[in-house]
Design a binder for these strands. Structure first.
Lengths: 342, 342
DNA sequence: CTGAAAGCGCTTACAG
DNA sequence: CTGAAAGCGCTTACAG
């Protein structure tokens, strides 16, 4: 900036005014400064300007996801970015991989970079470490999963209700032995989905059978192994239906059923969106929800906090809905049928 | 920092030394400063420290992708982040959506934030606007697509060879009317793949038939429409095989073939990775490559530039490989066959 | 309408 | 081993 000022023959303050489009600069000086800036290929240093500027904004927001490569996280990311970028904010996204220690470390790095706001899909069992920063003015929102030991804005899906609906859907088809495949136990949404599953069983007078519940599955391989184990249970004890409560877990269940040729014998309802699920044979019945909505809603909550909202915490809900495609409508006594070409 | 210094009864310089782990501070002072920092919940301002520090590094790198929600881009992102984050760098990712104007705007924003390096999947037809910044020391690498009108490090896949292999695979099965489905013409990789396709046809003495070439397809819907149009061509003119040269385009082709019940009649070879492609009936034959490798390689090239490498530009290649799963092995006279349960 | 001085939070370069 | 002064690139608060 000093060089631009020298070349244009003005003070740095005048250059600053021109760059920021402030009024009260003569047209002649505006022109001279712009020419000098172009000639020197000058670009202002946003970091330096934010340092001095009142309000202490960096124009950067942090987004802490489970894994930016997971299609669900990636959609959250895109939605969040669309909303934030429209406001000129840059988004620093990172992957926590269900590691609470990394959550703390990355949160600290975000704070040291003085992000204006932080959107978190939490992984640890304690987010109280953010308390002091929130009190100091940091805008924070949680999405997909609620914070623990901390009160803050949230954007969540109806996990319990969605799992309840999935299980009820299977019960209505006559199933009495319905397996539950769950993500890591420490994940709040995994517990909620299990609660919805168990509640639906109880309401129908069915037992909650621990031998049909497999938890701590976090990738498709472990889920596929769990399904294969379940299928080796003696007839009469093995499940006739499966509720897979997360997207990668659902993919694992699909793979295991196809591998063992049981995809038209054992009913399956999954959770989240799965690409091409409709083209499989049978199509995969899923409890779906709009990850995009979730990410956008979280960004909007965060922006109002950044804009100065200081009221009580708000809790936005995104609904799930069951989409029947075939796999969830298989009855308990089904035999493989000839495939109909549609 | 001033407050920490006051509370600890030392100068800010001493606080700075302790925070940065510099040697030559008495244990007593280290202890007092650390206590004061903890008590005040002090976190250093990285932006301010980078401003003053020699070398002018911000510890931020920019990543400009087509769309962070596209599974291919998302995998590039994850790989890039893994490599960059291991070095303590923060990654600002953004989506260009094939908009050259946005590419320029976002590149400028990255430069104004003084990123240490920039990794770009370019979308416009001219990246010379980065020339002056590279000369001024900005580290730049291009991935997946080469830059235009600019010489820089690249990490690219063997697009032409992969497309050539796909087309040859279909020719060997006896196909003579092979359709080409291509992404936006302005995308370099789309052209390269088309060249590979045409070259394979010519080598086998087959005509390059414009009526079988559909370009500027960029989402699955437009690709599905293109396939449906092709299938309405009179018998003898309609293609017996399709080469879909990008992941979303491949998904569109799969959907169209399934919708019209032709998935076991018309052969299909796709490009990129498609989730669950192996479980469809028939399984989808794909020319695959490791997006993760591409992202990691690009990050490594960028890091050496950031570390001071000033030599000539380097060009890394990631190989593609054809994975046969059924759809690409259908012959030109195929009839629907009964599905074998595996 | 324009600019000289001070300062954002930190590090550099130096003196003691 | 410790600190006072200067300055990174910019904006604020003020004077003219």
């Amino acid at each position: 900036m000093r060089e631009v000022a020298r070349l244009a023959g003005v003070s740095v303050k005048t250059v600053s005014r021109v760059i920021n489009g402030e009024p009260n600069v003569s047209a002649d000086l505006v022109h001279r400064v712009q020419r000098a800036a172009t000639q020197l290929d000058y670009h202002p240093d946003l970091g330096a300007s934010y340092l001095r500027r009142s309000g202490r904004r960096t124009g950067i927001v942090g987004l802490m996801l489970e894994d930016v490569a997971n299609p669900f996280s990636a959609t959250l990311h895109r939605a969040f970015w669309d909303t934030a970028a429209a406001r000129g904010l840059a988004v620093i996204a990172s992957s926590l991989d269900e590691d609470p220690e990394r959550e703390r470390r990355i949160a600290r790095a975000m704070i040291e970079r003085r992000v204006d706001g932080l959107a978190v899909v939490p992984t640890g069992q304690d987010q109280s470490y953010l308390r002091s920063h929130i009190d100091a003015g940091l805008a924070v929102v949680f999405l997909d999963r609620p914070p623990v030991l901390l009160d803050a804005d949230t954007a969540l899906a109806t996990n319990r209700a969605g799992a309840h609906e999935a299980t009820r859907h299977l019960i209505r088809r006559g199933h009495r032995r319905i397996a539950f495949l769950g993500d890591l136990r420490v994940i709040a949404t995994a517990s909620e989905r299990q609660e919805g599953y168990e509640q639906a069983l109880r309401e129908s007078g069915l037992p909650v059978d621990g031998s049909l519940i497999r938890r701590d599955l976090h990738d498709w391989e472990s889920a596929a192994n769990a399904v294969e184990e379940l299928m080796r249970l003696p007839a009469g004890l093995a499940p006739t239906a499966i509720f897979a409560s997360q997207n990668l877990v659902t993919i694992g269940a699909i793979r295991a059923l196809h591998r063992s040729g049981l995809q038209r014998v054992v009913a399956l309802v999954g959770f989240d969106q799965v690409e091409l699920a409709d083209l499989l044979d049978p199509g995969v019945t899923l409890v779906e929800y709009e990850a995009y909505n979730l990410g956008q809603t979280a960004a909007e909550l965060l922006l109002t906090r950044i804009d100065g909202y200081r009221g009580p915490s708000r809790h936005e809900i995104v609904s799930t809905r069951l989409v029947a495609r075939g796999s969830g409508e298989i009855g308990p006594g089904s035999q493989p049928r000839k495939r109909s070409v549609h």
